[in-house]
Design a protein around this nucleic acid. Structure first.
Length: 478
RNA sequence: CGAGGCGUAGCUCAGUUUGGUAGAGUGCCUGGUUUGGGACCAGGAUGCCGCAGGUUCGAGUCCUGUCGCCUCGACCA
């Protein structure tokens, strides 16, 4: 493994100040710029390209599973938002209101969507009449706004981009299966495309979505041991349907309420990618979503034939990869640092010596390992290196998670571990809110989820000692 | 929303204690030499000192207010 040396003095080291390291990367890799509105970020081309790649992959998967894209309004009338009482109670503190149209005060305030359940419900109530109209499998890619108190680029911005799937089903079983299916779509996407291992599980009642019967989540662990809720999928039962009068005539000729789901994944995930794979030289991107997968850097480019050879390689690789040839006047060393900052998975160097030997040099972003590759076998070698690279990212992230996952069977043990470490603590729980609050109070940990992969660590609740109902992953979250 | 920190050149910041010509590094532009890990030389451009009031002969500096950003808590995708 090549020596890991910090090349870029401009970034704060992640061990010194992880939060600062994060903002340094976000700005210096040109993912975002701050805007003049608090908490709202400008997503720059390089950052947006990552999102577009995420979109492309997920959108294809949604459609493969039968979902259709739609576009609903940005504004929600207050009366509509108010219809489901748990939902409005959950979101009221963080909605922004439009009160005027031009100079005229509106009769009814309009809320800027924090999420679109209510809009989908209203629409569904118009278009669903029969079981033959079901299921409805809609999704939209859009922006939403939540009046957040503390904001950070990607991780928690007031306005953010996401997709929200909203589906209606004839039966509970179908809706529950949809909820699980979509959670797995997210989880597989994270693991296969983003090289981010996730824990799949269910949220406790305290942590679940406002108005949901059940909320499922995928939790990723960041490099500093904190958890990031990276995607959620909710089962609503027929609560929203009742509140919004969505009624269909069933196969048995009776009036019935459909069962509903929603699921979402946001630009927050980009923050997750940064904090999962990044290092002191900058961003480290998984190939699936990297805007540039291979950067070609001509060495001694003023010498005859170098630029021509570089351009030829770029054309050749463009058939299969997102490639950039940097023939700017900056020195080769400058370019190395620049594209490391930007997390480009592979760097291809080609100079006079390589041309003479009919080869090029390929360098991996994650460990700077160098490969001397004959041009005849370029594509096959790149494929090999790329898949090793991707695997290495996944393994590094898994190793970090394993090293920072603990378990506890008593409160003393739990508080001690929490005080000395950052990470997940697995512990048994009785299911009572009281204990959840007590754990927050004593160990400053919140429940991240009740994993589907349960392990019986003890018979009793870590907090109260009463019989335990499930194992919970506890931690600190973003 | 609580506690703390910060707003001066594109960026990072010094200058504020003790009021008196607006600074450095980096980046940017021009020309030349370089080019296998952020090159070098020479020349050049760039400021409503966050904003609004006030004190003063004079304010980047003092006072009041206000807006914004960052960090840590509380709340949340």
């Amino acid at each position: 493994m090549a020596e890991q040396k910090k090349m870029v003095e401009a970034i704060t080291s992640m061990d010194v100040d992880f939060a600062k390291w994060y903002t340094d990367i976000v700005l210096k890799a040109e993912l975002v710029d701050y805007s003049s509105v608090r908490g709202c970020m400008i997503i720059r081309p390089y950052g947006f390209a990552i999102w577009e790649n995420i979109q492309k992959i997920l959108d294809a998967e949604f459609k493969r599973l039968g979902h259709e894209n739609v576009c609903l309004p940005l504004l929600i009338p207050e009366s509509l938002l108010q219809k489901e009482k748990d939902h409005v109670a959950g979101f009221a503190p963080e909605v922004a209101w439009v009160t005027h149209g031009g100079n005229e005060k509106l009769n009814e305030r309009l809320c800027i969507r924090p999420t679109s359940e209510t809009l989908f419900c209203e629409h569904y109530s118009h278009i669903v009449n029969s079981y033959r109209d079901l299921p409805k499998l809609y999704n939209q890619w859009c922006n939403v706004l939540r009046w957040e108190k503390t904001t950070r680029p990607f991780l928690r911005s007031m306005e953010f981009l996401w997709q929200e799937g909203h589906t209606l089903h004839e039966t509970q079983q179908e809706a529950e299966a949809e909820t699980q299916q979509m959670l797995n779509v997210y989880a597989d996407f994270c693991e296969e495309h983003l090289a981010m291992p996730v824990v799949r599980g269910r949220k406790t009642d305290k942590e679940k979505f406002a108005g949901a019967v059940a909320t499922y989540t995928i939790e990723a662990m960041m490099h500093d041991g904190k958890a990031l809720q990276s995607g959620t999928s909710h089962y609503f039962g027929d609560g929203f349907a009742k509140a919004f009068d969505i009624i269909f005539q069933g196969r048995d000729n009776t009036q019935q309420y459909p069962h509903q789901t929603s699921w979402g994944l946001s630009t927050r995930l980009i923050g997750g990618i940064i904090m999962t794979h990044g290092d002191d030289s900058g961003l480290v991107l998984p190939p699936s979503v990297a805007p540039i997968q291979i950067v070609i850097i001509p060495v001694a480019q003023h010498k005859e034939g170098v630029l021509e050879a570089s351009a030829k390689l770029a054309d050749r690789l463009k058939a299969k990869y997102r490639v950039k040839l940097d023939d700017s006047d900056n020195s080769a060393g400058w370019k190395y640092s620049e594209y490391e900052m930007k997390g480009v998975p592979l760097r291809l160097e080609i100079g006079p010596r390589d041309i003479a030997d009919n080869q090029c040099v390929i360098v991996r972003r994650d460990n700077r390992q160098k490969y001397f590759v004959k041009l005849d076998e370029l594509e096959s070698k790149i494929e090999e290196i790329m898949s090793e690279y991707k695997l290495a990212l996944y393994e590094k992230a898994s190793a970090n998670r394993a090293a920072k996952t603990f378990s506890a069977t008593s409160m003393d043990e739990m508080t001690k571990i929490a005080a000395e470490n950052s990470g997940y603590i697995n512990a048994m729980w009785c299911g009572e809110l009281e204990c959840e609050l007590a754990i927050k109070d004593k160990a400053n940990l919140s429940s991240r989820c009740m994993p589907f992969n349960q392990e019986k660590l003890a018979e009793t609740c870590v907090c109260c000692g009463k019989p335990a109902k499930s194992m919970v992953v506890w931690g600190k979250s973003y």
